[in-house]
Design a binder for these strands. Structure first.
Lengths: 110, 110
DNA sequence: AATCTTCATCGTAATATTGCAATATTAAAC
DNA sequence: GTTTAATATTGCAATATTACGATGAAGATT
């Protein structure tokens, strides 16, 4: 095995898990933070910002894009990626909802 | 290879990545949602709630605990796990911060 | 004490991820 | 048209993850 049994879970659960999984690597967190920091979304120097080889960075970018966390495309020899707000709004809404529910509860026994 | 190069990234980046990675599986999302739903944190029936074998569920619980997302322990033959608010507060703060920064920016070109 | 129940751990097979060198692609620069 | 610059893709090795059957541990039940 080794393959996740996605078919047994709800679409919403799989969606959040996919987004979380894509962010489950420090290089991809670093990429997101870099995209947030720079003003423009044209980020030709993103490889220089990371301690990883160019193919590795390219692969991480691909995974972020597949998950919907970044959008954009290459135009010849320059990439143009930026954060996709929709995905981050989903994550914020999800965790915001959980924390408000937790505050109401307060029946933690551990 | 195959091993993440955590030493090249900041502690904060690794921390968020670890939390996100732990939530990067629908079964673990389902576990968190179940823990949120039930009033008590004594969840002896959690295996019945998931479409996975008992050792697999146990393993997922272990990963959630290692990441700090749940706390608690077993007491003999009954587990007592509940959500650790601290971890979820960190996630909420992190994504909340990102989304507010994104709203201020609005210079997306993609 | 023997059995049952419940959860953890071990061992293992299947699959996925990570990382990079080598190579391909593609548009701009010359 | 050839070179250059920037990114993607391929192929591969090392490692991690996912899942589960078998087994172990430990309190509860009889």
């Amino acid at each position: 095995m080794g393959a996740t049994k996605t078919e047994h879970f709800t679409d919403k659960q799989n969606e959040i898990a996919t987004l979380a999984k894509a962010l489950g690597h420090p290089a991809r967190i670093a990429i997101m933070e870099y995209l947030l920091k720079v003003d423009t979304c044209i980020c030709g120097d993103i490889v220089n910002e990371l301690p990883l080889a160019q193919p590795t960075v390219s692969q991480h970018l691909k995974e972020l894009k597949n998950a919907g966390l970044i959008k954009g495309d290459i135009e010849g020899n320059t990439i143009c990626y930026c954060i996709d707000e929709k995905a981050l709004n989903k994550l914020q809404a999800y965790f915001g909802n959980i924390t408000t529910k937790l505050e109401k509860k307060k029946s933690n026994c551990c």
